[in-house]
Design a protein around this nucleic acid. Structure first.
Lengths: 226, 226
DNA sequence: CTTACTTTGCGTCATATTAACGCAAACATG
DNA sequence: CATGTTTGCGTTAATATGACGCAAAGTAAG
């Protein structure tokens, strides 16, 4: 067997699937590459892991330097290992997915640096490397996770209306959910709190604003939608 | 930014959590190390990833050479990145969990090579590296997965009685489940098929033998136990 | 074979959850 | 003010769940 110091191994990259939700559209941040391979093609943002860096630090570095974002919800997704996935040589990719409210970063669709942009998940371009596969895995994870864990709040403002939350779920899951049943289930689950406040606006009264109940223990939620 | 060929990165290991079920006990395969670090301590079986090897190939290599096993159920678990997790230097570990019926390999408790043995998950020794953490993650995954996916069949013989399946679920989840309600749910889910056969034995009649329904589509199962 | 005990298969029933949808008050718009 | 939409709350039938009864089938021992 190989001794530790003799060991030579594949390169290790971190790639990110950053989801954003804005005006009823779920999007993913893509980078337009300015170098080979896949020059001028779209890929997920990523970087090689530094020698003493943790995965989460690498994620933070990518988010900050390439995208100008900080303190996002991050979760490890999967590690990809196909030998041909990077034409430059063997690269293992550990992937994470992130959720962000684009409004917190002034990054509404179309207003970003010219090599980074949001792409509606229903209108994705071709992606370089095996990033299509990674994206699919991330979307699948988001969809299954939101059914039992209140992960969607990361995509909304701190306070939101029931309608906004309902639209978010319909958009992410790509199904229609009965508004009244959704309301009942979400309220029963105690995942959100009625702040009693209203959004100040044009007229006198408005629908209630809710916020995420951070004190909630995890597994008492099961949005069993058809 | 670093050029691809200049890049130097952490070492990459694969570690396995191999679960086996035998005589109503759920166990994990551990290796007694014969070299530093953690000499004479227990660890999960693992190896460094070879340059052109896929994760699944490395898993197969570990299973075959260290444990004499082949063709197990394998699923990627998580990738671990703490800088101090290996005293020899920076090692990233991509982990998998495997399910095996020990009877298929003649590996009943205590009958293995002297440096490999099954350990009841309720009586685990101290583990080297961060392997305790990996083991916990694997057990958590197994427990949550078995509630919505028929993953337990990998641990039983091809044909099994309802009682055996029921005992397996109680053992893995470490709870008691009403026998009659379990039966109803499992049969309603169509996850198993009544083979019509009986186990040949001492007397004339025996309980039905069932087998896993391989044609089943995935997500129509929800064992909602209390 | 008979008796006593355990295991297995099937059924009942009260309660909880779900899906589908009604409706009126609050709200927006011209 | 008149009209259409949004929001909050409720009802109901169908289904799922948890707790448990019971008898036929199977086992063990005299």
């Amino acid at each position: 067997m190989l001794k530790f110091h003799e060991y030579r191994n594949p390169a290790l990259a971190i790639d990110l699937v950053v989801f954003g939700y804005y005006e009823k559209v779920l999007s993913v941040l893509l980078l337009n590459r300015n170098e080979e391979p896949f020059k001028n093609g779209w890929t997920l943002p990523g970087a090689f892991l530094q020698m003493e860096e943790r995965f989460s630090e690498a994620c933070g570095r990518i988010l900050k330097t390439k995208l100008g974002m900080e303190h996002l919800f991050l979760e490890q997704l999967y590690s990809f290992d196909e030998p041909g996935r990077d034409p430059r040589g063997r690269v293992i990719s550990v992937t994470y997915f992130a959720l962000v409210n684009p409004r917190n970063f002034g990054l509404a669709a179309g207003k970003m640096a010219n090599d980074v942009s949001w792409h509606d998940i229903k209108k994705m371009p071709e992606l370089g490397f095996d990033h299509k596969k990674i994206f699919k895995k991330a979307l699948e994870r988001l969809r299954s996770k939101i059914l039992y864990f209140p992960v969607g709040f990361e995509l909304l403002d701190e306070m939101f209306t029931m309608t906004e939350l309902h639209e978010l779920y319909e958009c992410i899951l790509d199904i229609s959910i009965d508004r009244r049943n959704f309301r009942r289930k979400i309220l029963d689950s105690e995942y959100i709190i009625d702040t009693g406040q209203k959004r100040e606006g044009l007229q006198n009264r408005h629908p209630s604003l809710y916020k995420f109940n951070k004190k909630l223990k995890q597994h008492n939620f099961n949005l069993n939608v058809s």
